[in-house]
Lab assay of single mutants.
Amino acid sequence: SDFTIRIGDRTLHLKNVSEEILKILEELLRRGIDFEELRKIVEELIK
């Protein structure tokens, strides 16, 4: 499924993301992860 994360004025667009990855990202966001850290993790996950 497609997913968009907005943190402040920044946006991260994800396409064809599995439910498992979404759950991980949601947990990281709940813990207050930094946007740049989140972006790096996402890039690793979707390689």
Rank of each mutant, 00 (worst) to 15 (best):
G32K: 08
R31M: 10
L14Q: 01
F3E: 02
V17C: 02
K23Q: 11
G8I: 01
E44C: 09
F35A: 05
L38N: 03
I7V: 11
G8V: 01
L38C: 02
G32M: 06
R30S: 15
E26H: 15
L45I: 11
L22K: 14
E36W: 05
F3H: 09
D2E: 02
I24W: 08
I5F: 01
I7Y: 03
I21C: 04
F35Q: 04
K15D: 04
H13F: 05
I33E: 06
R39N: 14
K23T: 14
E43I: 09
S1Q: 15
D2N: 01
S18L: 02
V17E: 01
G8E: 03
G32T: 11
H13Q: 10
E20H: 10
L22H: 13
E19K: 09
E20T: 13
R6N: 13
L28Q: 10
E27T: 08
G8P: 00
K40Q: 11
R31H: 11
L28N: 07
K40V: 12
E44K: 11
K47A: 14
I7A: 02
V17K: 01
F3G: 03
R31V: 15
L28S: 08
F35I: 04
L45T: 07
E43F: 10
I5Q: 01
E37V: 07
K47P: 13
R30L: 14
E43W: 09
E19Q: 14
R39E: 12
T4L: 08
F3Q: 05
I24T: 11
L12D: 00
T4G: 01
S1D: 10
L45F: 07
L28H: 13
R10Q: 14
T4E: 12
I41T: 13
H13Y: 07
S18V: 04
I7R: 00
I24G: 08
L38T: 05
F3C: 10
D9V: 02
E44V: 10
R31P: 07
I21T: 13
V42W: 04
I5M: 02
E26G: 07
I7S: 02
D34M: 09
L38D: 02
V17Q: 02
V17N: 01
T11V: 15
D9W: 00
E36F: 07
L12Q: 01
K40W: 09
K15L: 03
N16F: 06
K40C: 07
I46W: 08
I33V: 09
I46Y: 11
I33P: 11
V17P: 05
L25Q: 00
L29Y: 04
E27V: 09
R6E: 11
G32N: 14
E44I: 08
L29H: 03
I5R: 00
F35K: 03
R31N: 15
E37R: 05
E27R: 05
K40R: 15
I33S: 09
D2Q: 00
L45N: 06
K40H: 13
N16G: 12
E19I: 12
K15A: 12
L22M: 10
F3S: 04
R31E: 08
E27Q: 06
L12M: 09
E43C: 06
L29W: 04
L12C: 02
R10V: 15
V42Q: 02
E37L: 11
N16T: 03
N16I: 05
I5L: 02
R10T: 09
I33T: 11
I46L: 13
E43L: 10
